[in-house]
Design a protein around this nucleic acid. Structure first.
Lengths: 194, 194
DNA sequence: AGCGACATGTAAGCGGTTACATGATTCT
DNA sequence: AGAATCATGTAACCGCTTACATGTCGCT
């Protein structure tokens, strides 16, 4: 949807090669946006066609030659336009909600296991956010000389952490709801046998 | 990702034409999964090729002829398999987080407006969930004779509502954080003028 | 005659993933 | 000699969106 603009954002810190851009991507916005390297090159070509980035060819002796991409004036203008432009709110599109939706087709225990697994994954995610991602962000703030930006980076990271915590809590309460339902059904079945 | 399985799920209630399936989609899972009508027909063809749905041609006099799609045994087996199969957790991929991430390129007020707008949209969403979607679900439970399923439907709806509430709360706290920062910066600037 | 509901599709294009493809340099 | 890192891309495929395309029937 807005990958090109994410790239413009990273390049606003400094000009980068596609290779370095990819690494910067993995290290900075990876907690809410993931991309394949191949896509970055294609997006870069498009941004160049559009006149939003310029290319500087750099010959190297100790490594293969490379191309440094940097923002043009139009590119920076487009970035500024985009940053405050209303964004569409995407639908959730989450498979596990579909599983729950059709949960009556499965047995309650399987659904509970599904939710427990989800809790485990989410907790691992939170731990990763709190250790690797946070420190990675701090490192990048120094590398890109972007002290002002760090606070914003941490704000988005905070969203990721809080949202994952919310998911854990919701899953826990859903497990309890299912537990309750299983008990009630048990009672009904028992009484119908009398 | 799992649109075919969402279709299998809906068809597990009863056989439907593509047209009715589309309507059922809009009325039931619309709060976490949206689809275009054209996609449903294509998915249906694929499901048929795979042997997961059968087609029954129905001639009508008071309306155009139609095709009723219904689950085959394999289709039902596949649905049961999928419901308890681990799902990948997609990354957030939300544009507004990108805007915030690169927030240092914009002024604080614009970002606050962005968040306020987000709050408004989310609150409208919540209201819609609580009125239209909830009652629509109840209606469909009767139509599909799916009283057992209703509880699960409401569970996913609850997630949608709680998640939207979480988003509102987070946005409110983010606005306060930005407010704070703007004040501190104001102080710094004022003191640097002395 | 016109509109809304019923009914089924195709075509073009975009964004994204996975896999493939190549080649230099540096370190072990 | 082999592995890791630096560096840049192409090709095939898939899912989804937007727009197009066609036609019936019943009601007003």
């Amino acid at each position: 949807m807005s990958l090109p603009h994410m790239i413009l954002g990273i390049l606003s810190y400094r000009g980068l090669s596609g290779y370095d851009l990819n690494k910067a991507f993995q290290a900075s916005v990876q907690h809410f946006w993931n991309t394949e390297q191949s896509q970055i090159y294609r997006a870069l070509h498009k941004l160049h066609e559009q006149g939003w980035v310029g290319i500087e060819h750099v010959a190297q002796e100790d490594a293969p030659d490379k191309k440094i991409y940097h923002l043009t004036e139009q590119g920076r203008a487009e970035l500024h336009r985009w940053i405050v432009a209303p964004q569409p709110i995407p639908t959730l599109h989450e498979g596990w909600l579909g599983q729950l939706f059709f949960g009556a087709e499965a047995d309650v225990q399987s659904l509970q296991h599904l939710l427990e697994e989800r809790i485990r994954v989410m907790q691992a995610l939170i731990e990763n956010y709190e250790t690797n991602v946070a420190s990675g962000g701090a490192r990048y703030a120094i590398e890109f000389d972007a002290a002002d930006d760090l606070a914003y980076w941490m704000l988005t990271l905070d969203y990721g952490i809080q949202k994952a915590r919310f998911d854990v809590q919701w899953a826990e309460s859903a497990i309890r709801t299912l537990e309750q339902r299983a008990k009630e059904q048990g009672v009904h079945e028992a009484s119908s046998h009398e």
